[in-house]
Write a protein that binds this DNA or RNA. Structure first.
Lengths: 257, 257
DNA sequence: GGTTATTTGTGGCAAATTGCCAGACCCCTG
DNA sequence: CAGGGGTCTGGCAATTTGCCACAAATAACC
């Protein structure tokens, strides 16, 4: 059970964070008269609950230092760009394209800005904004409640809005690619939504950058076998074998400099 | 000596950059009391995350191709902020708020970030993004085809999505405020959509900055009389008289420095 | 009152940050 | 176009911070 003392510290830490923006471990430790390790555990607990983000030497308010999305978008840029180019090469003039949220699909969106005469559906705010600034394509936003971590709509509204579209090709993200070659997701709702996206489209591809190889997330995505895979590096042998057994279509994007 | 947290410097650097446009390494080093190398590393880290660009001797705001939207948002900032504050003062804890697209309603969105426990519906991508980054409120995006000039959803889908919500208070933009005290819009579709927004809400307000006074746009907005008006300056006498005849509720926001 | 579970503190080691220094580079001026 | 002053880059050492595992302390429970 949580000791009242710890709860009091948490409260005070959050108050300081919202007031000043950042706190340091050292400050808090001397101020509360506890060890730095304890403070660090407090910060970790609060970070796990999404109330702040831990930075070197302390913690900072979540929304200012951690657009989380912008941060993640910077990882493995070259690989994601390569995936984007490969995905775009599958898209032909006049197609209806469905784009999931995520940083890898954002790279696909960038690659699609060079195309013309597309109809693009997405549940992501950033993707919609990017694509509507590029000329030549119509953009449809799938509405619904916005998940702050993805900055994209999720839930029943999205699934229902999806049902109105006839989609030629879908590019979908995911949480991880297991050793068994299964595509998995973090949440039940997310997995279901992605399954619907795949079911809606004539052809669907998961876009997964190399960071997802072997990552274990809890929920299996239904109908994932219907979808192909676009990645930015050769998967490890064990995964590659599993994919071959499932006869999953696999495309490996090559980076160019 | 206690080591300063890098995140604190980063935050301050970004603040200065957005404020003054450029910063110099020397300035920052003396101001933070650290070496120039450290500052350079900070700048590199921020540049890697895409928050600024490094130039010889310092750093500058990142050159982004700001869309026309960004331009308009720069006009009459103080007035729009005042309107935002006034609008926010009408919003109470737990309310369901409907936000139209536009630069003036964006100021309202900014003011609403300080509130808690709201449910906010909007058809604007930028508004949704801004609000979902602020903690404490749920955001619903009204889906539909994206109009590139407003970067917001328009059309039948929006009107239908609207019908699912029970809205306490709506803040709506418009094209102009005529000499007769009539609120008007550029397009038929836009006027209809705004009329529906007003009809959906228990209470609705147009937010119009002084630039809209006397501007003539072709389409009258239905049911505009049900809505109040929030402006940032006393309207000219002729308009004020017309509004009084219509017994339109008029709030004039005051700028504070 | 004894036992269990949770929290807190401590120590060692890995990793990150910072300052300093030397050499290469850039920009400006004459 | 050459020189000078300032700026950037890379490596290295000192210090701080983070992480992990284990021990101690304290609250909760029967």
């Amino acid at each position: 059970m949580a000791r009242p003392i710890a709860a009091r510290r948490h409260e005070e830490i959050l108050k300081r964070i919202t007031h000043t923006g950042t706190v340091s471990v050292e400050e808090l430790a001397t101020s509360f008269g506890v060890s730095r390790e304890t403070i660090r555990r407090d910060l970790k607990a609060l970070a796990d609950r999404g109330r702040l983000s831990v930075v070197h030497g302390g913690a900072a308010r979540r929304e200012t230092t951690e657009p989380a999305l912008g941060e993640r978008a910077q990882e493995n840029i070259a690989g994601k760009a390569a995936i984007g180019r490969t995905a775009a090469s599958l898209v032909e003039d006049g197609m209806v394209v469905l784009l999931d949220s995520g940083t890898t699909t954002l790279a696909v969106a960038r690659a699609l800005t060079t195309k013309r005469n597309l109809t693009i559906c997405t549940n992501s705010l950033a993707h919609a904004q990017l694509l509507c600034r590029a000329p030549g394509s119509r953009v449809h936003m799938l509405g619904g409640e916005i998940d702050p971590t993805d900055e994209a709509a999720v839930g029943l509204d999205v699934i229902e809005a999806l049902s109105r579209f006839r989609v030629d090709i879908a590019f979908v993200g995911a949480g991880g690619l297991s050793q068994d070659g299964e595509v998995t997701d973090y949440t039940r709702a997310g997995a279901e939504q992605r399954a619907r996206m795949i079911a809606t489209a004539t052809k669907a591809y998961f876009v997964l950058d190399r960071g997802k190889f072997g990552r274990l997330t809890p929920i299996r995505i239904r109908d994932a076998d219907r979808a192909g895979l676009i990645v930015d590096a050769k998967p490890p042998p064990s995964i590659a074998e599993a994919l071959a057994r499932r006869s999953t279509e696999l495309m490996i994007a090559v980076e160019c400099d």
